[in-house]
Structure formats: structure tokens, C-alpha cells
Nucleic acid binder design. Structure first.
Ligand SMILES: [Mn+2]
Ligand SMILES: [Mn+2]
Ligand SMILES: [Zn+2]
Ligand SMILES: [Zn+2]
Lengths: 141, 141
DNA sequence: GTGAGATTTAGAATTATTCCAATAAACTAA
DNA sequence: TTAGTTTATTGGAATAATTCTAAATCTCAC
């Protein structure tokens, strides 16, 4: 299992404040749920998990919170196929491995410098501020 | 502009036959439309372009044809954000550059060996059969 | 405590895609 | 050819994911 680097629950309120946003119970819970099980859940899955602890929360709020967390860059939205967006609280530069057998998604640590190295293939005139790498295949067990 | 490598209109019928599928006018037209303007159109955009030449075609057929072409591997389905799937007839291994200003997507040629090199970062037990690379940023003009 | 602005909420609306059942077209065998 | 069989297309209904909207609730500054 790769190491992960994330905002902590404590630093979240800090980060939100820096964007002029409030640290609401809903935002904190959505974030904590993402931290608890790092399996790249969909909004619906997050909703189900969150609802178990806060039965009155709405799906619209889960979407709102996820969007907010993505804007604040404490969560990454992951899209690599038709189908619902998945959410990832791993802040470290990492790639995604999509296991085609199980449908599960794993984080892959990137060696330092790899993203910059990959960027060197860009022709003149292209200036990338992010690089995303997605593997597809079979992962053992 | 990167070189592209694609199936030709002639080889399409061949490729379809190899999969036991028929080379229908709809499939050929959808494919030719993709070849004509390589801007990674959505199914809706393909539908509009195709309809100009074959006014009776249906959107369902466009989806069916695109799906067939993807299965035959003469077209790639591209998904890197919420929103409709985009389609690309470039068969060569290439990355995508998403220009955030214009929303347009450009093909980026990959130096030979780059994908294999990137695969070497995978830990034991991960066996990737494909690697996708997506850049986001600003492209000149 | 009040008022302004931010956030949440339920439900409606929208978008993209898939499904379905009926028709049409193409291929096969006689 | 033609009848039978399979494949493909079509329009419309259905579904899935997300976004929108307007009303209620909450928070913060005063
Ligand atoms: Mn999505
Ligand atoms: Mn899509
Ligand atoms: Zn991740
Ligand atoms: Zn492409």
C-alpha cells in the first residue's frame, strides 16, 4: 500500500478558512469519510457512508461538499471512464491503477521528478500545469 | 501538429470483417467524420456532422457505431473529466493535452519507449496493459 | 439579538447514455 | 431469386449522474 499524504481533519478547517469558506459539520464529515476508506468512492457511495453517521444529510450537500473540497485541493476528482466521478483524498502526486478485473482503483506513488520528466515530451508552446497518469490492467490478488 | 496514424477508410471494412461485423454506410460515415476533423468530438458533435451528410441517421446509431469502432480499436474513447466521452481516431500511442482556456484537446506524440518507461514505476504485482497520459494547461494560440 | 451572507436541503430539471421493440438491411442456403 | 436468419438501425422510453432552484437554516459581524 503506498504511503499517502493528506490534509488532516484539523488542517481542513484551516484550508477552508483560507478560501473564505466555513468548516461545516457536513464538509468535515465528508472529508473524514474519504480519509477513512481510501477506495475512490463515487458521490453516491460517499453519501451512503456519510448518511450512516449523519442521517439528515442530503445528496445535494454531498455533491456540494465534494466540489468544495476539490476546489480547495484537499480532494482530487478522478475521471477515467464513462461513469461517476470518484474522489481521492491523497494529496501526494500519484498515478491511478484501474484493476479491470475488480473495478477497483489503486494509488501508485510517483518517484520524484517523474511528472517533470514526462512533461519534457511536450512540444514548444505547450505549458502543462498538471499531468495525470492512468494505468489499466490486472493487479495481483 | 503531430503526425497521426489511423486506419484508412479502406482498411475499416477489413477490420470490421475481422470482428465478424458489417461495414455499413453508417459505420463508414461515422469513421470518416472522425478522420476529417480530429478535434475529439463528443457523440452529439459527431451526430451533428454526420447528419449533414446522412440526414436520416439517428443518435442511437451514432452511439452504436462509435461503440463498435472503439471495440474494433480503430477509435479511442477519451474521458478525462465529467462530461461526455470524446472520440479520437489517432491509433498511434499518444497523450492528450487539454487546453483549459479553450477546452480543446490536442494529441501529443509519445517518444518510443516512454510508455514502457512509465510502466516501470509500477510496484510488484501490478501488470498494466495500457497507460494513459493527460496534460492540462495552456497551449499557445 | 438582528441582518447579511453562506450553507444545506428536497425536489425538479438537465445531460449523457443506454435500453427496447419494431423495422429494415444484408447474408445464406436452396 | 427467394425464404429464412442474423445483424444493424431507428425513435422513443428509460436510466444514471449531476446540476439547478428556491426555500429553510445556520453563522458571523455588528
Ligand atoms: Mn462524471
Ligand atoms: Mn461520458
Ligand atoms: Zn488516488
Ligand atoms: Zn487523441
Amino acid at each position: 500500500m503506498p504511503e499517502t499524504s493528506t490534509a488532516t481533519p484539523e488542517s481542513l478547517s484551516q484550508t477552508l478558512a483560507e478560501s473564505g469558506l466555513r468548516a461545516t459539520p457536513q464538509r468535515e464529515l465528508v472529508f473524514n469519510i474519504l480519509l477513512k476508506k481510501r477506495d475512490h468512492p463515487t458521490a453516491d457511495e460517499v453519501f451512503a457512508r456519510v448518511k450512516a453517521e449523519m442521517p439528515t444529510i442530503s445528496l445535494a450537500t454531498v455533491y456540494n461538499c465534494l466540489e468544495t473540497l476539490v476546489q480547495c485541493r484537499v480532494v482530487r476528482a478522478v475521471n477515467f471512464e464513462r461513469g461517476p466521478t470518484r474522489y481521492c483524498p491523497n494529496q501526494k502526486p500519484h498515478a491511478h491503477f484501474h484493476d479491470e478485473q475488480t473495478g477497483s482503483t489503486h494509488d501508485i506513488d510517483l518517484p520524484p521528478g517523474l511528472l517533470d520528466q514526462v512533461k519534457t515530451i511536450l512540444p514548444e508552446g505547450y505549458d502543462a500545469n498538471s499531468v495525470e497518469i492512468i494505468f489499466r490492467g490486472k493487479a495481483q490478488s
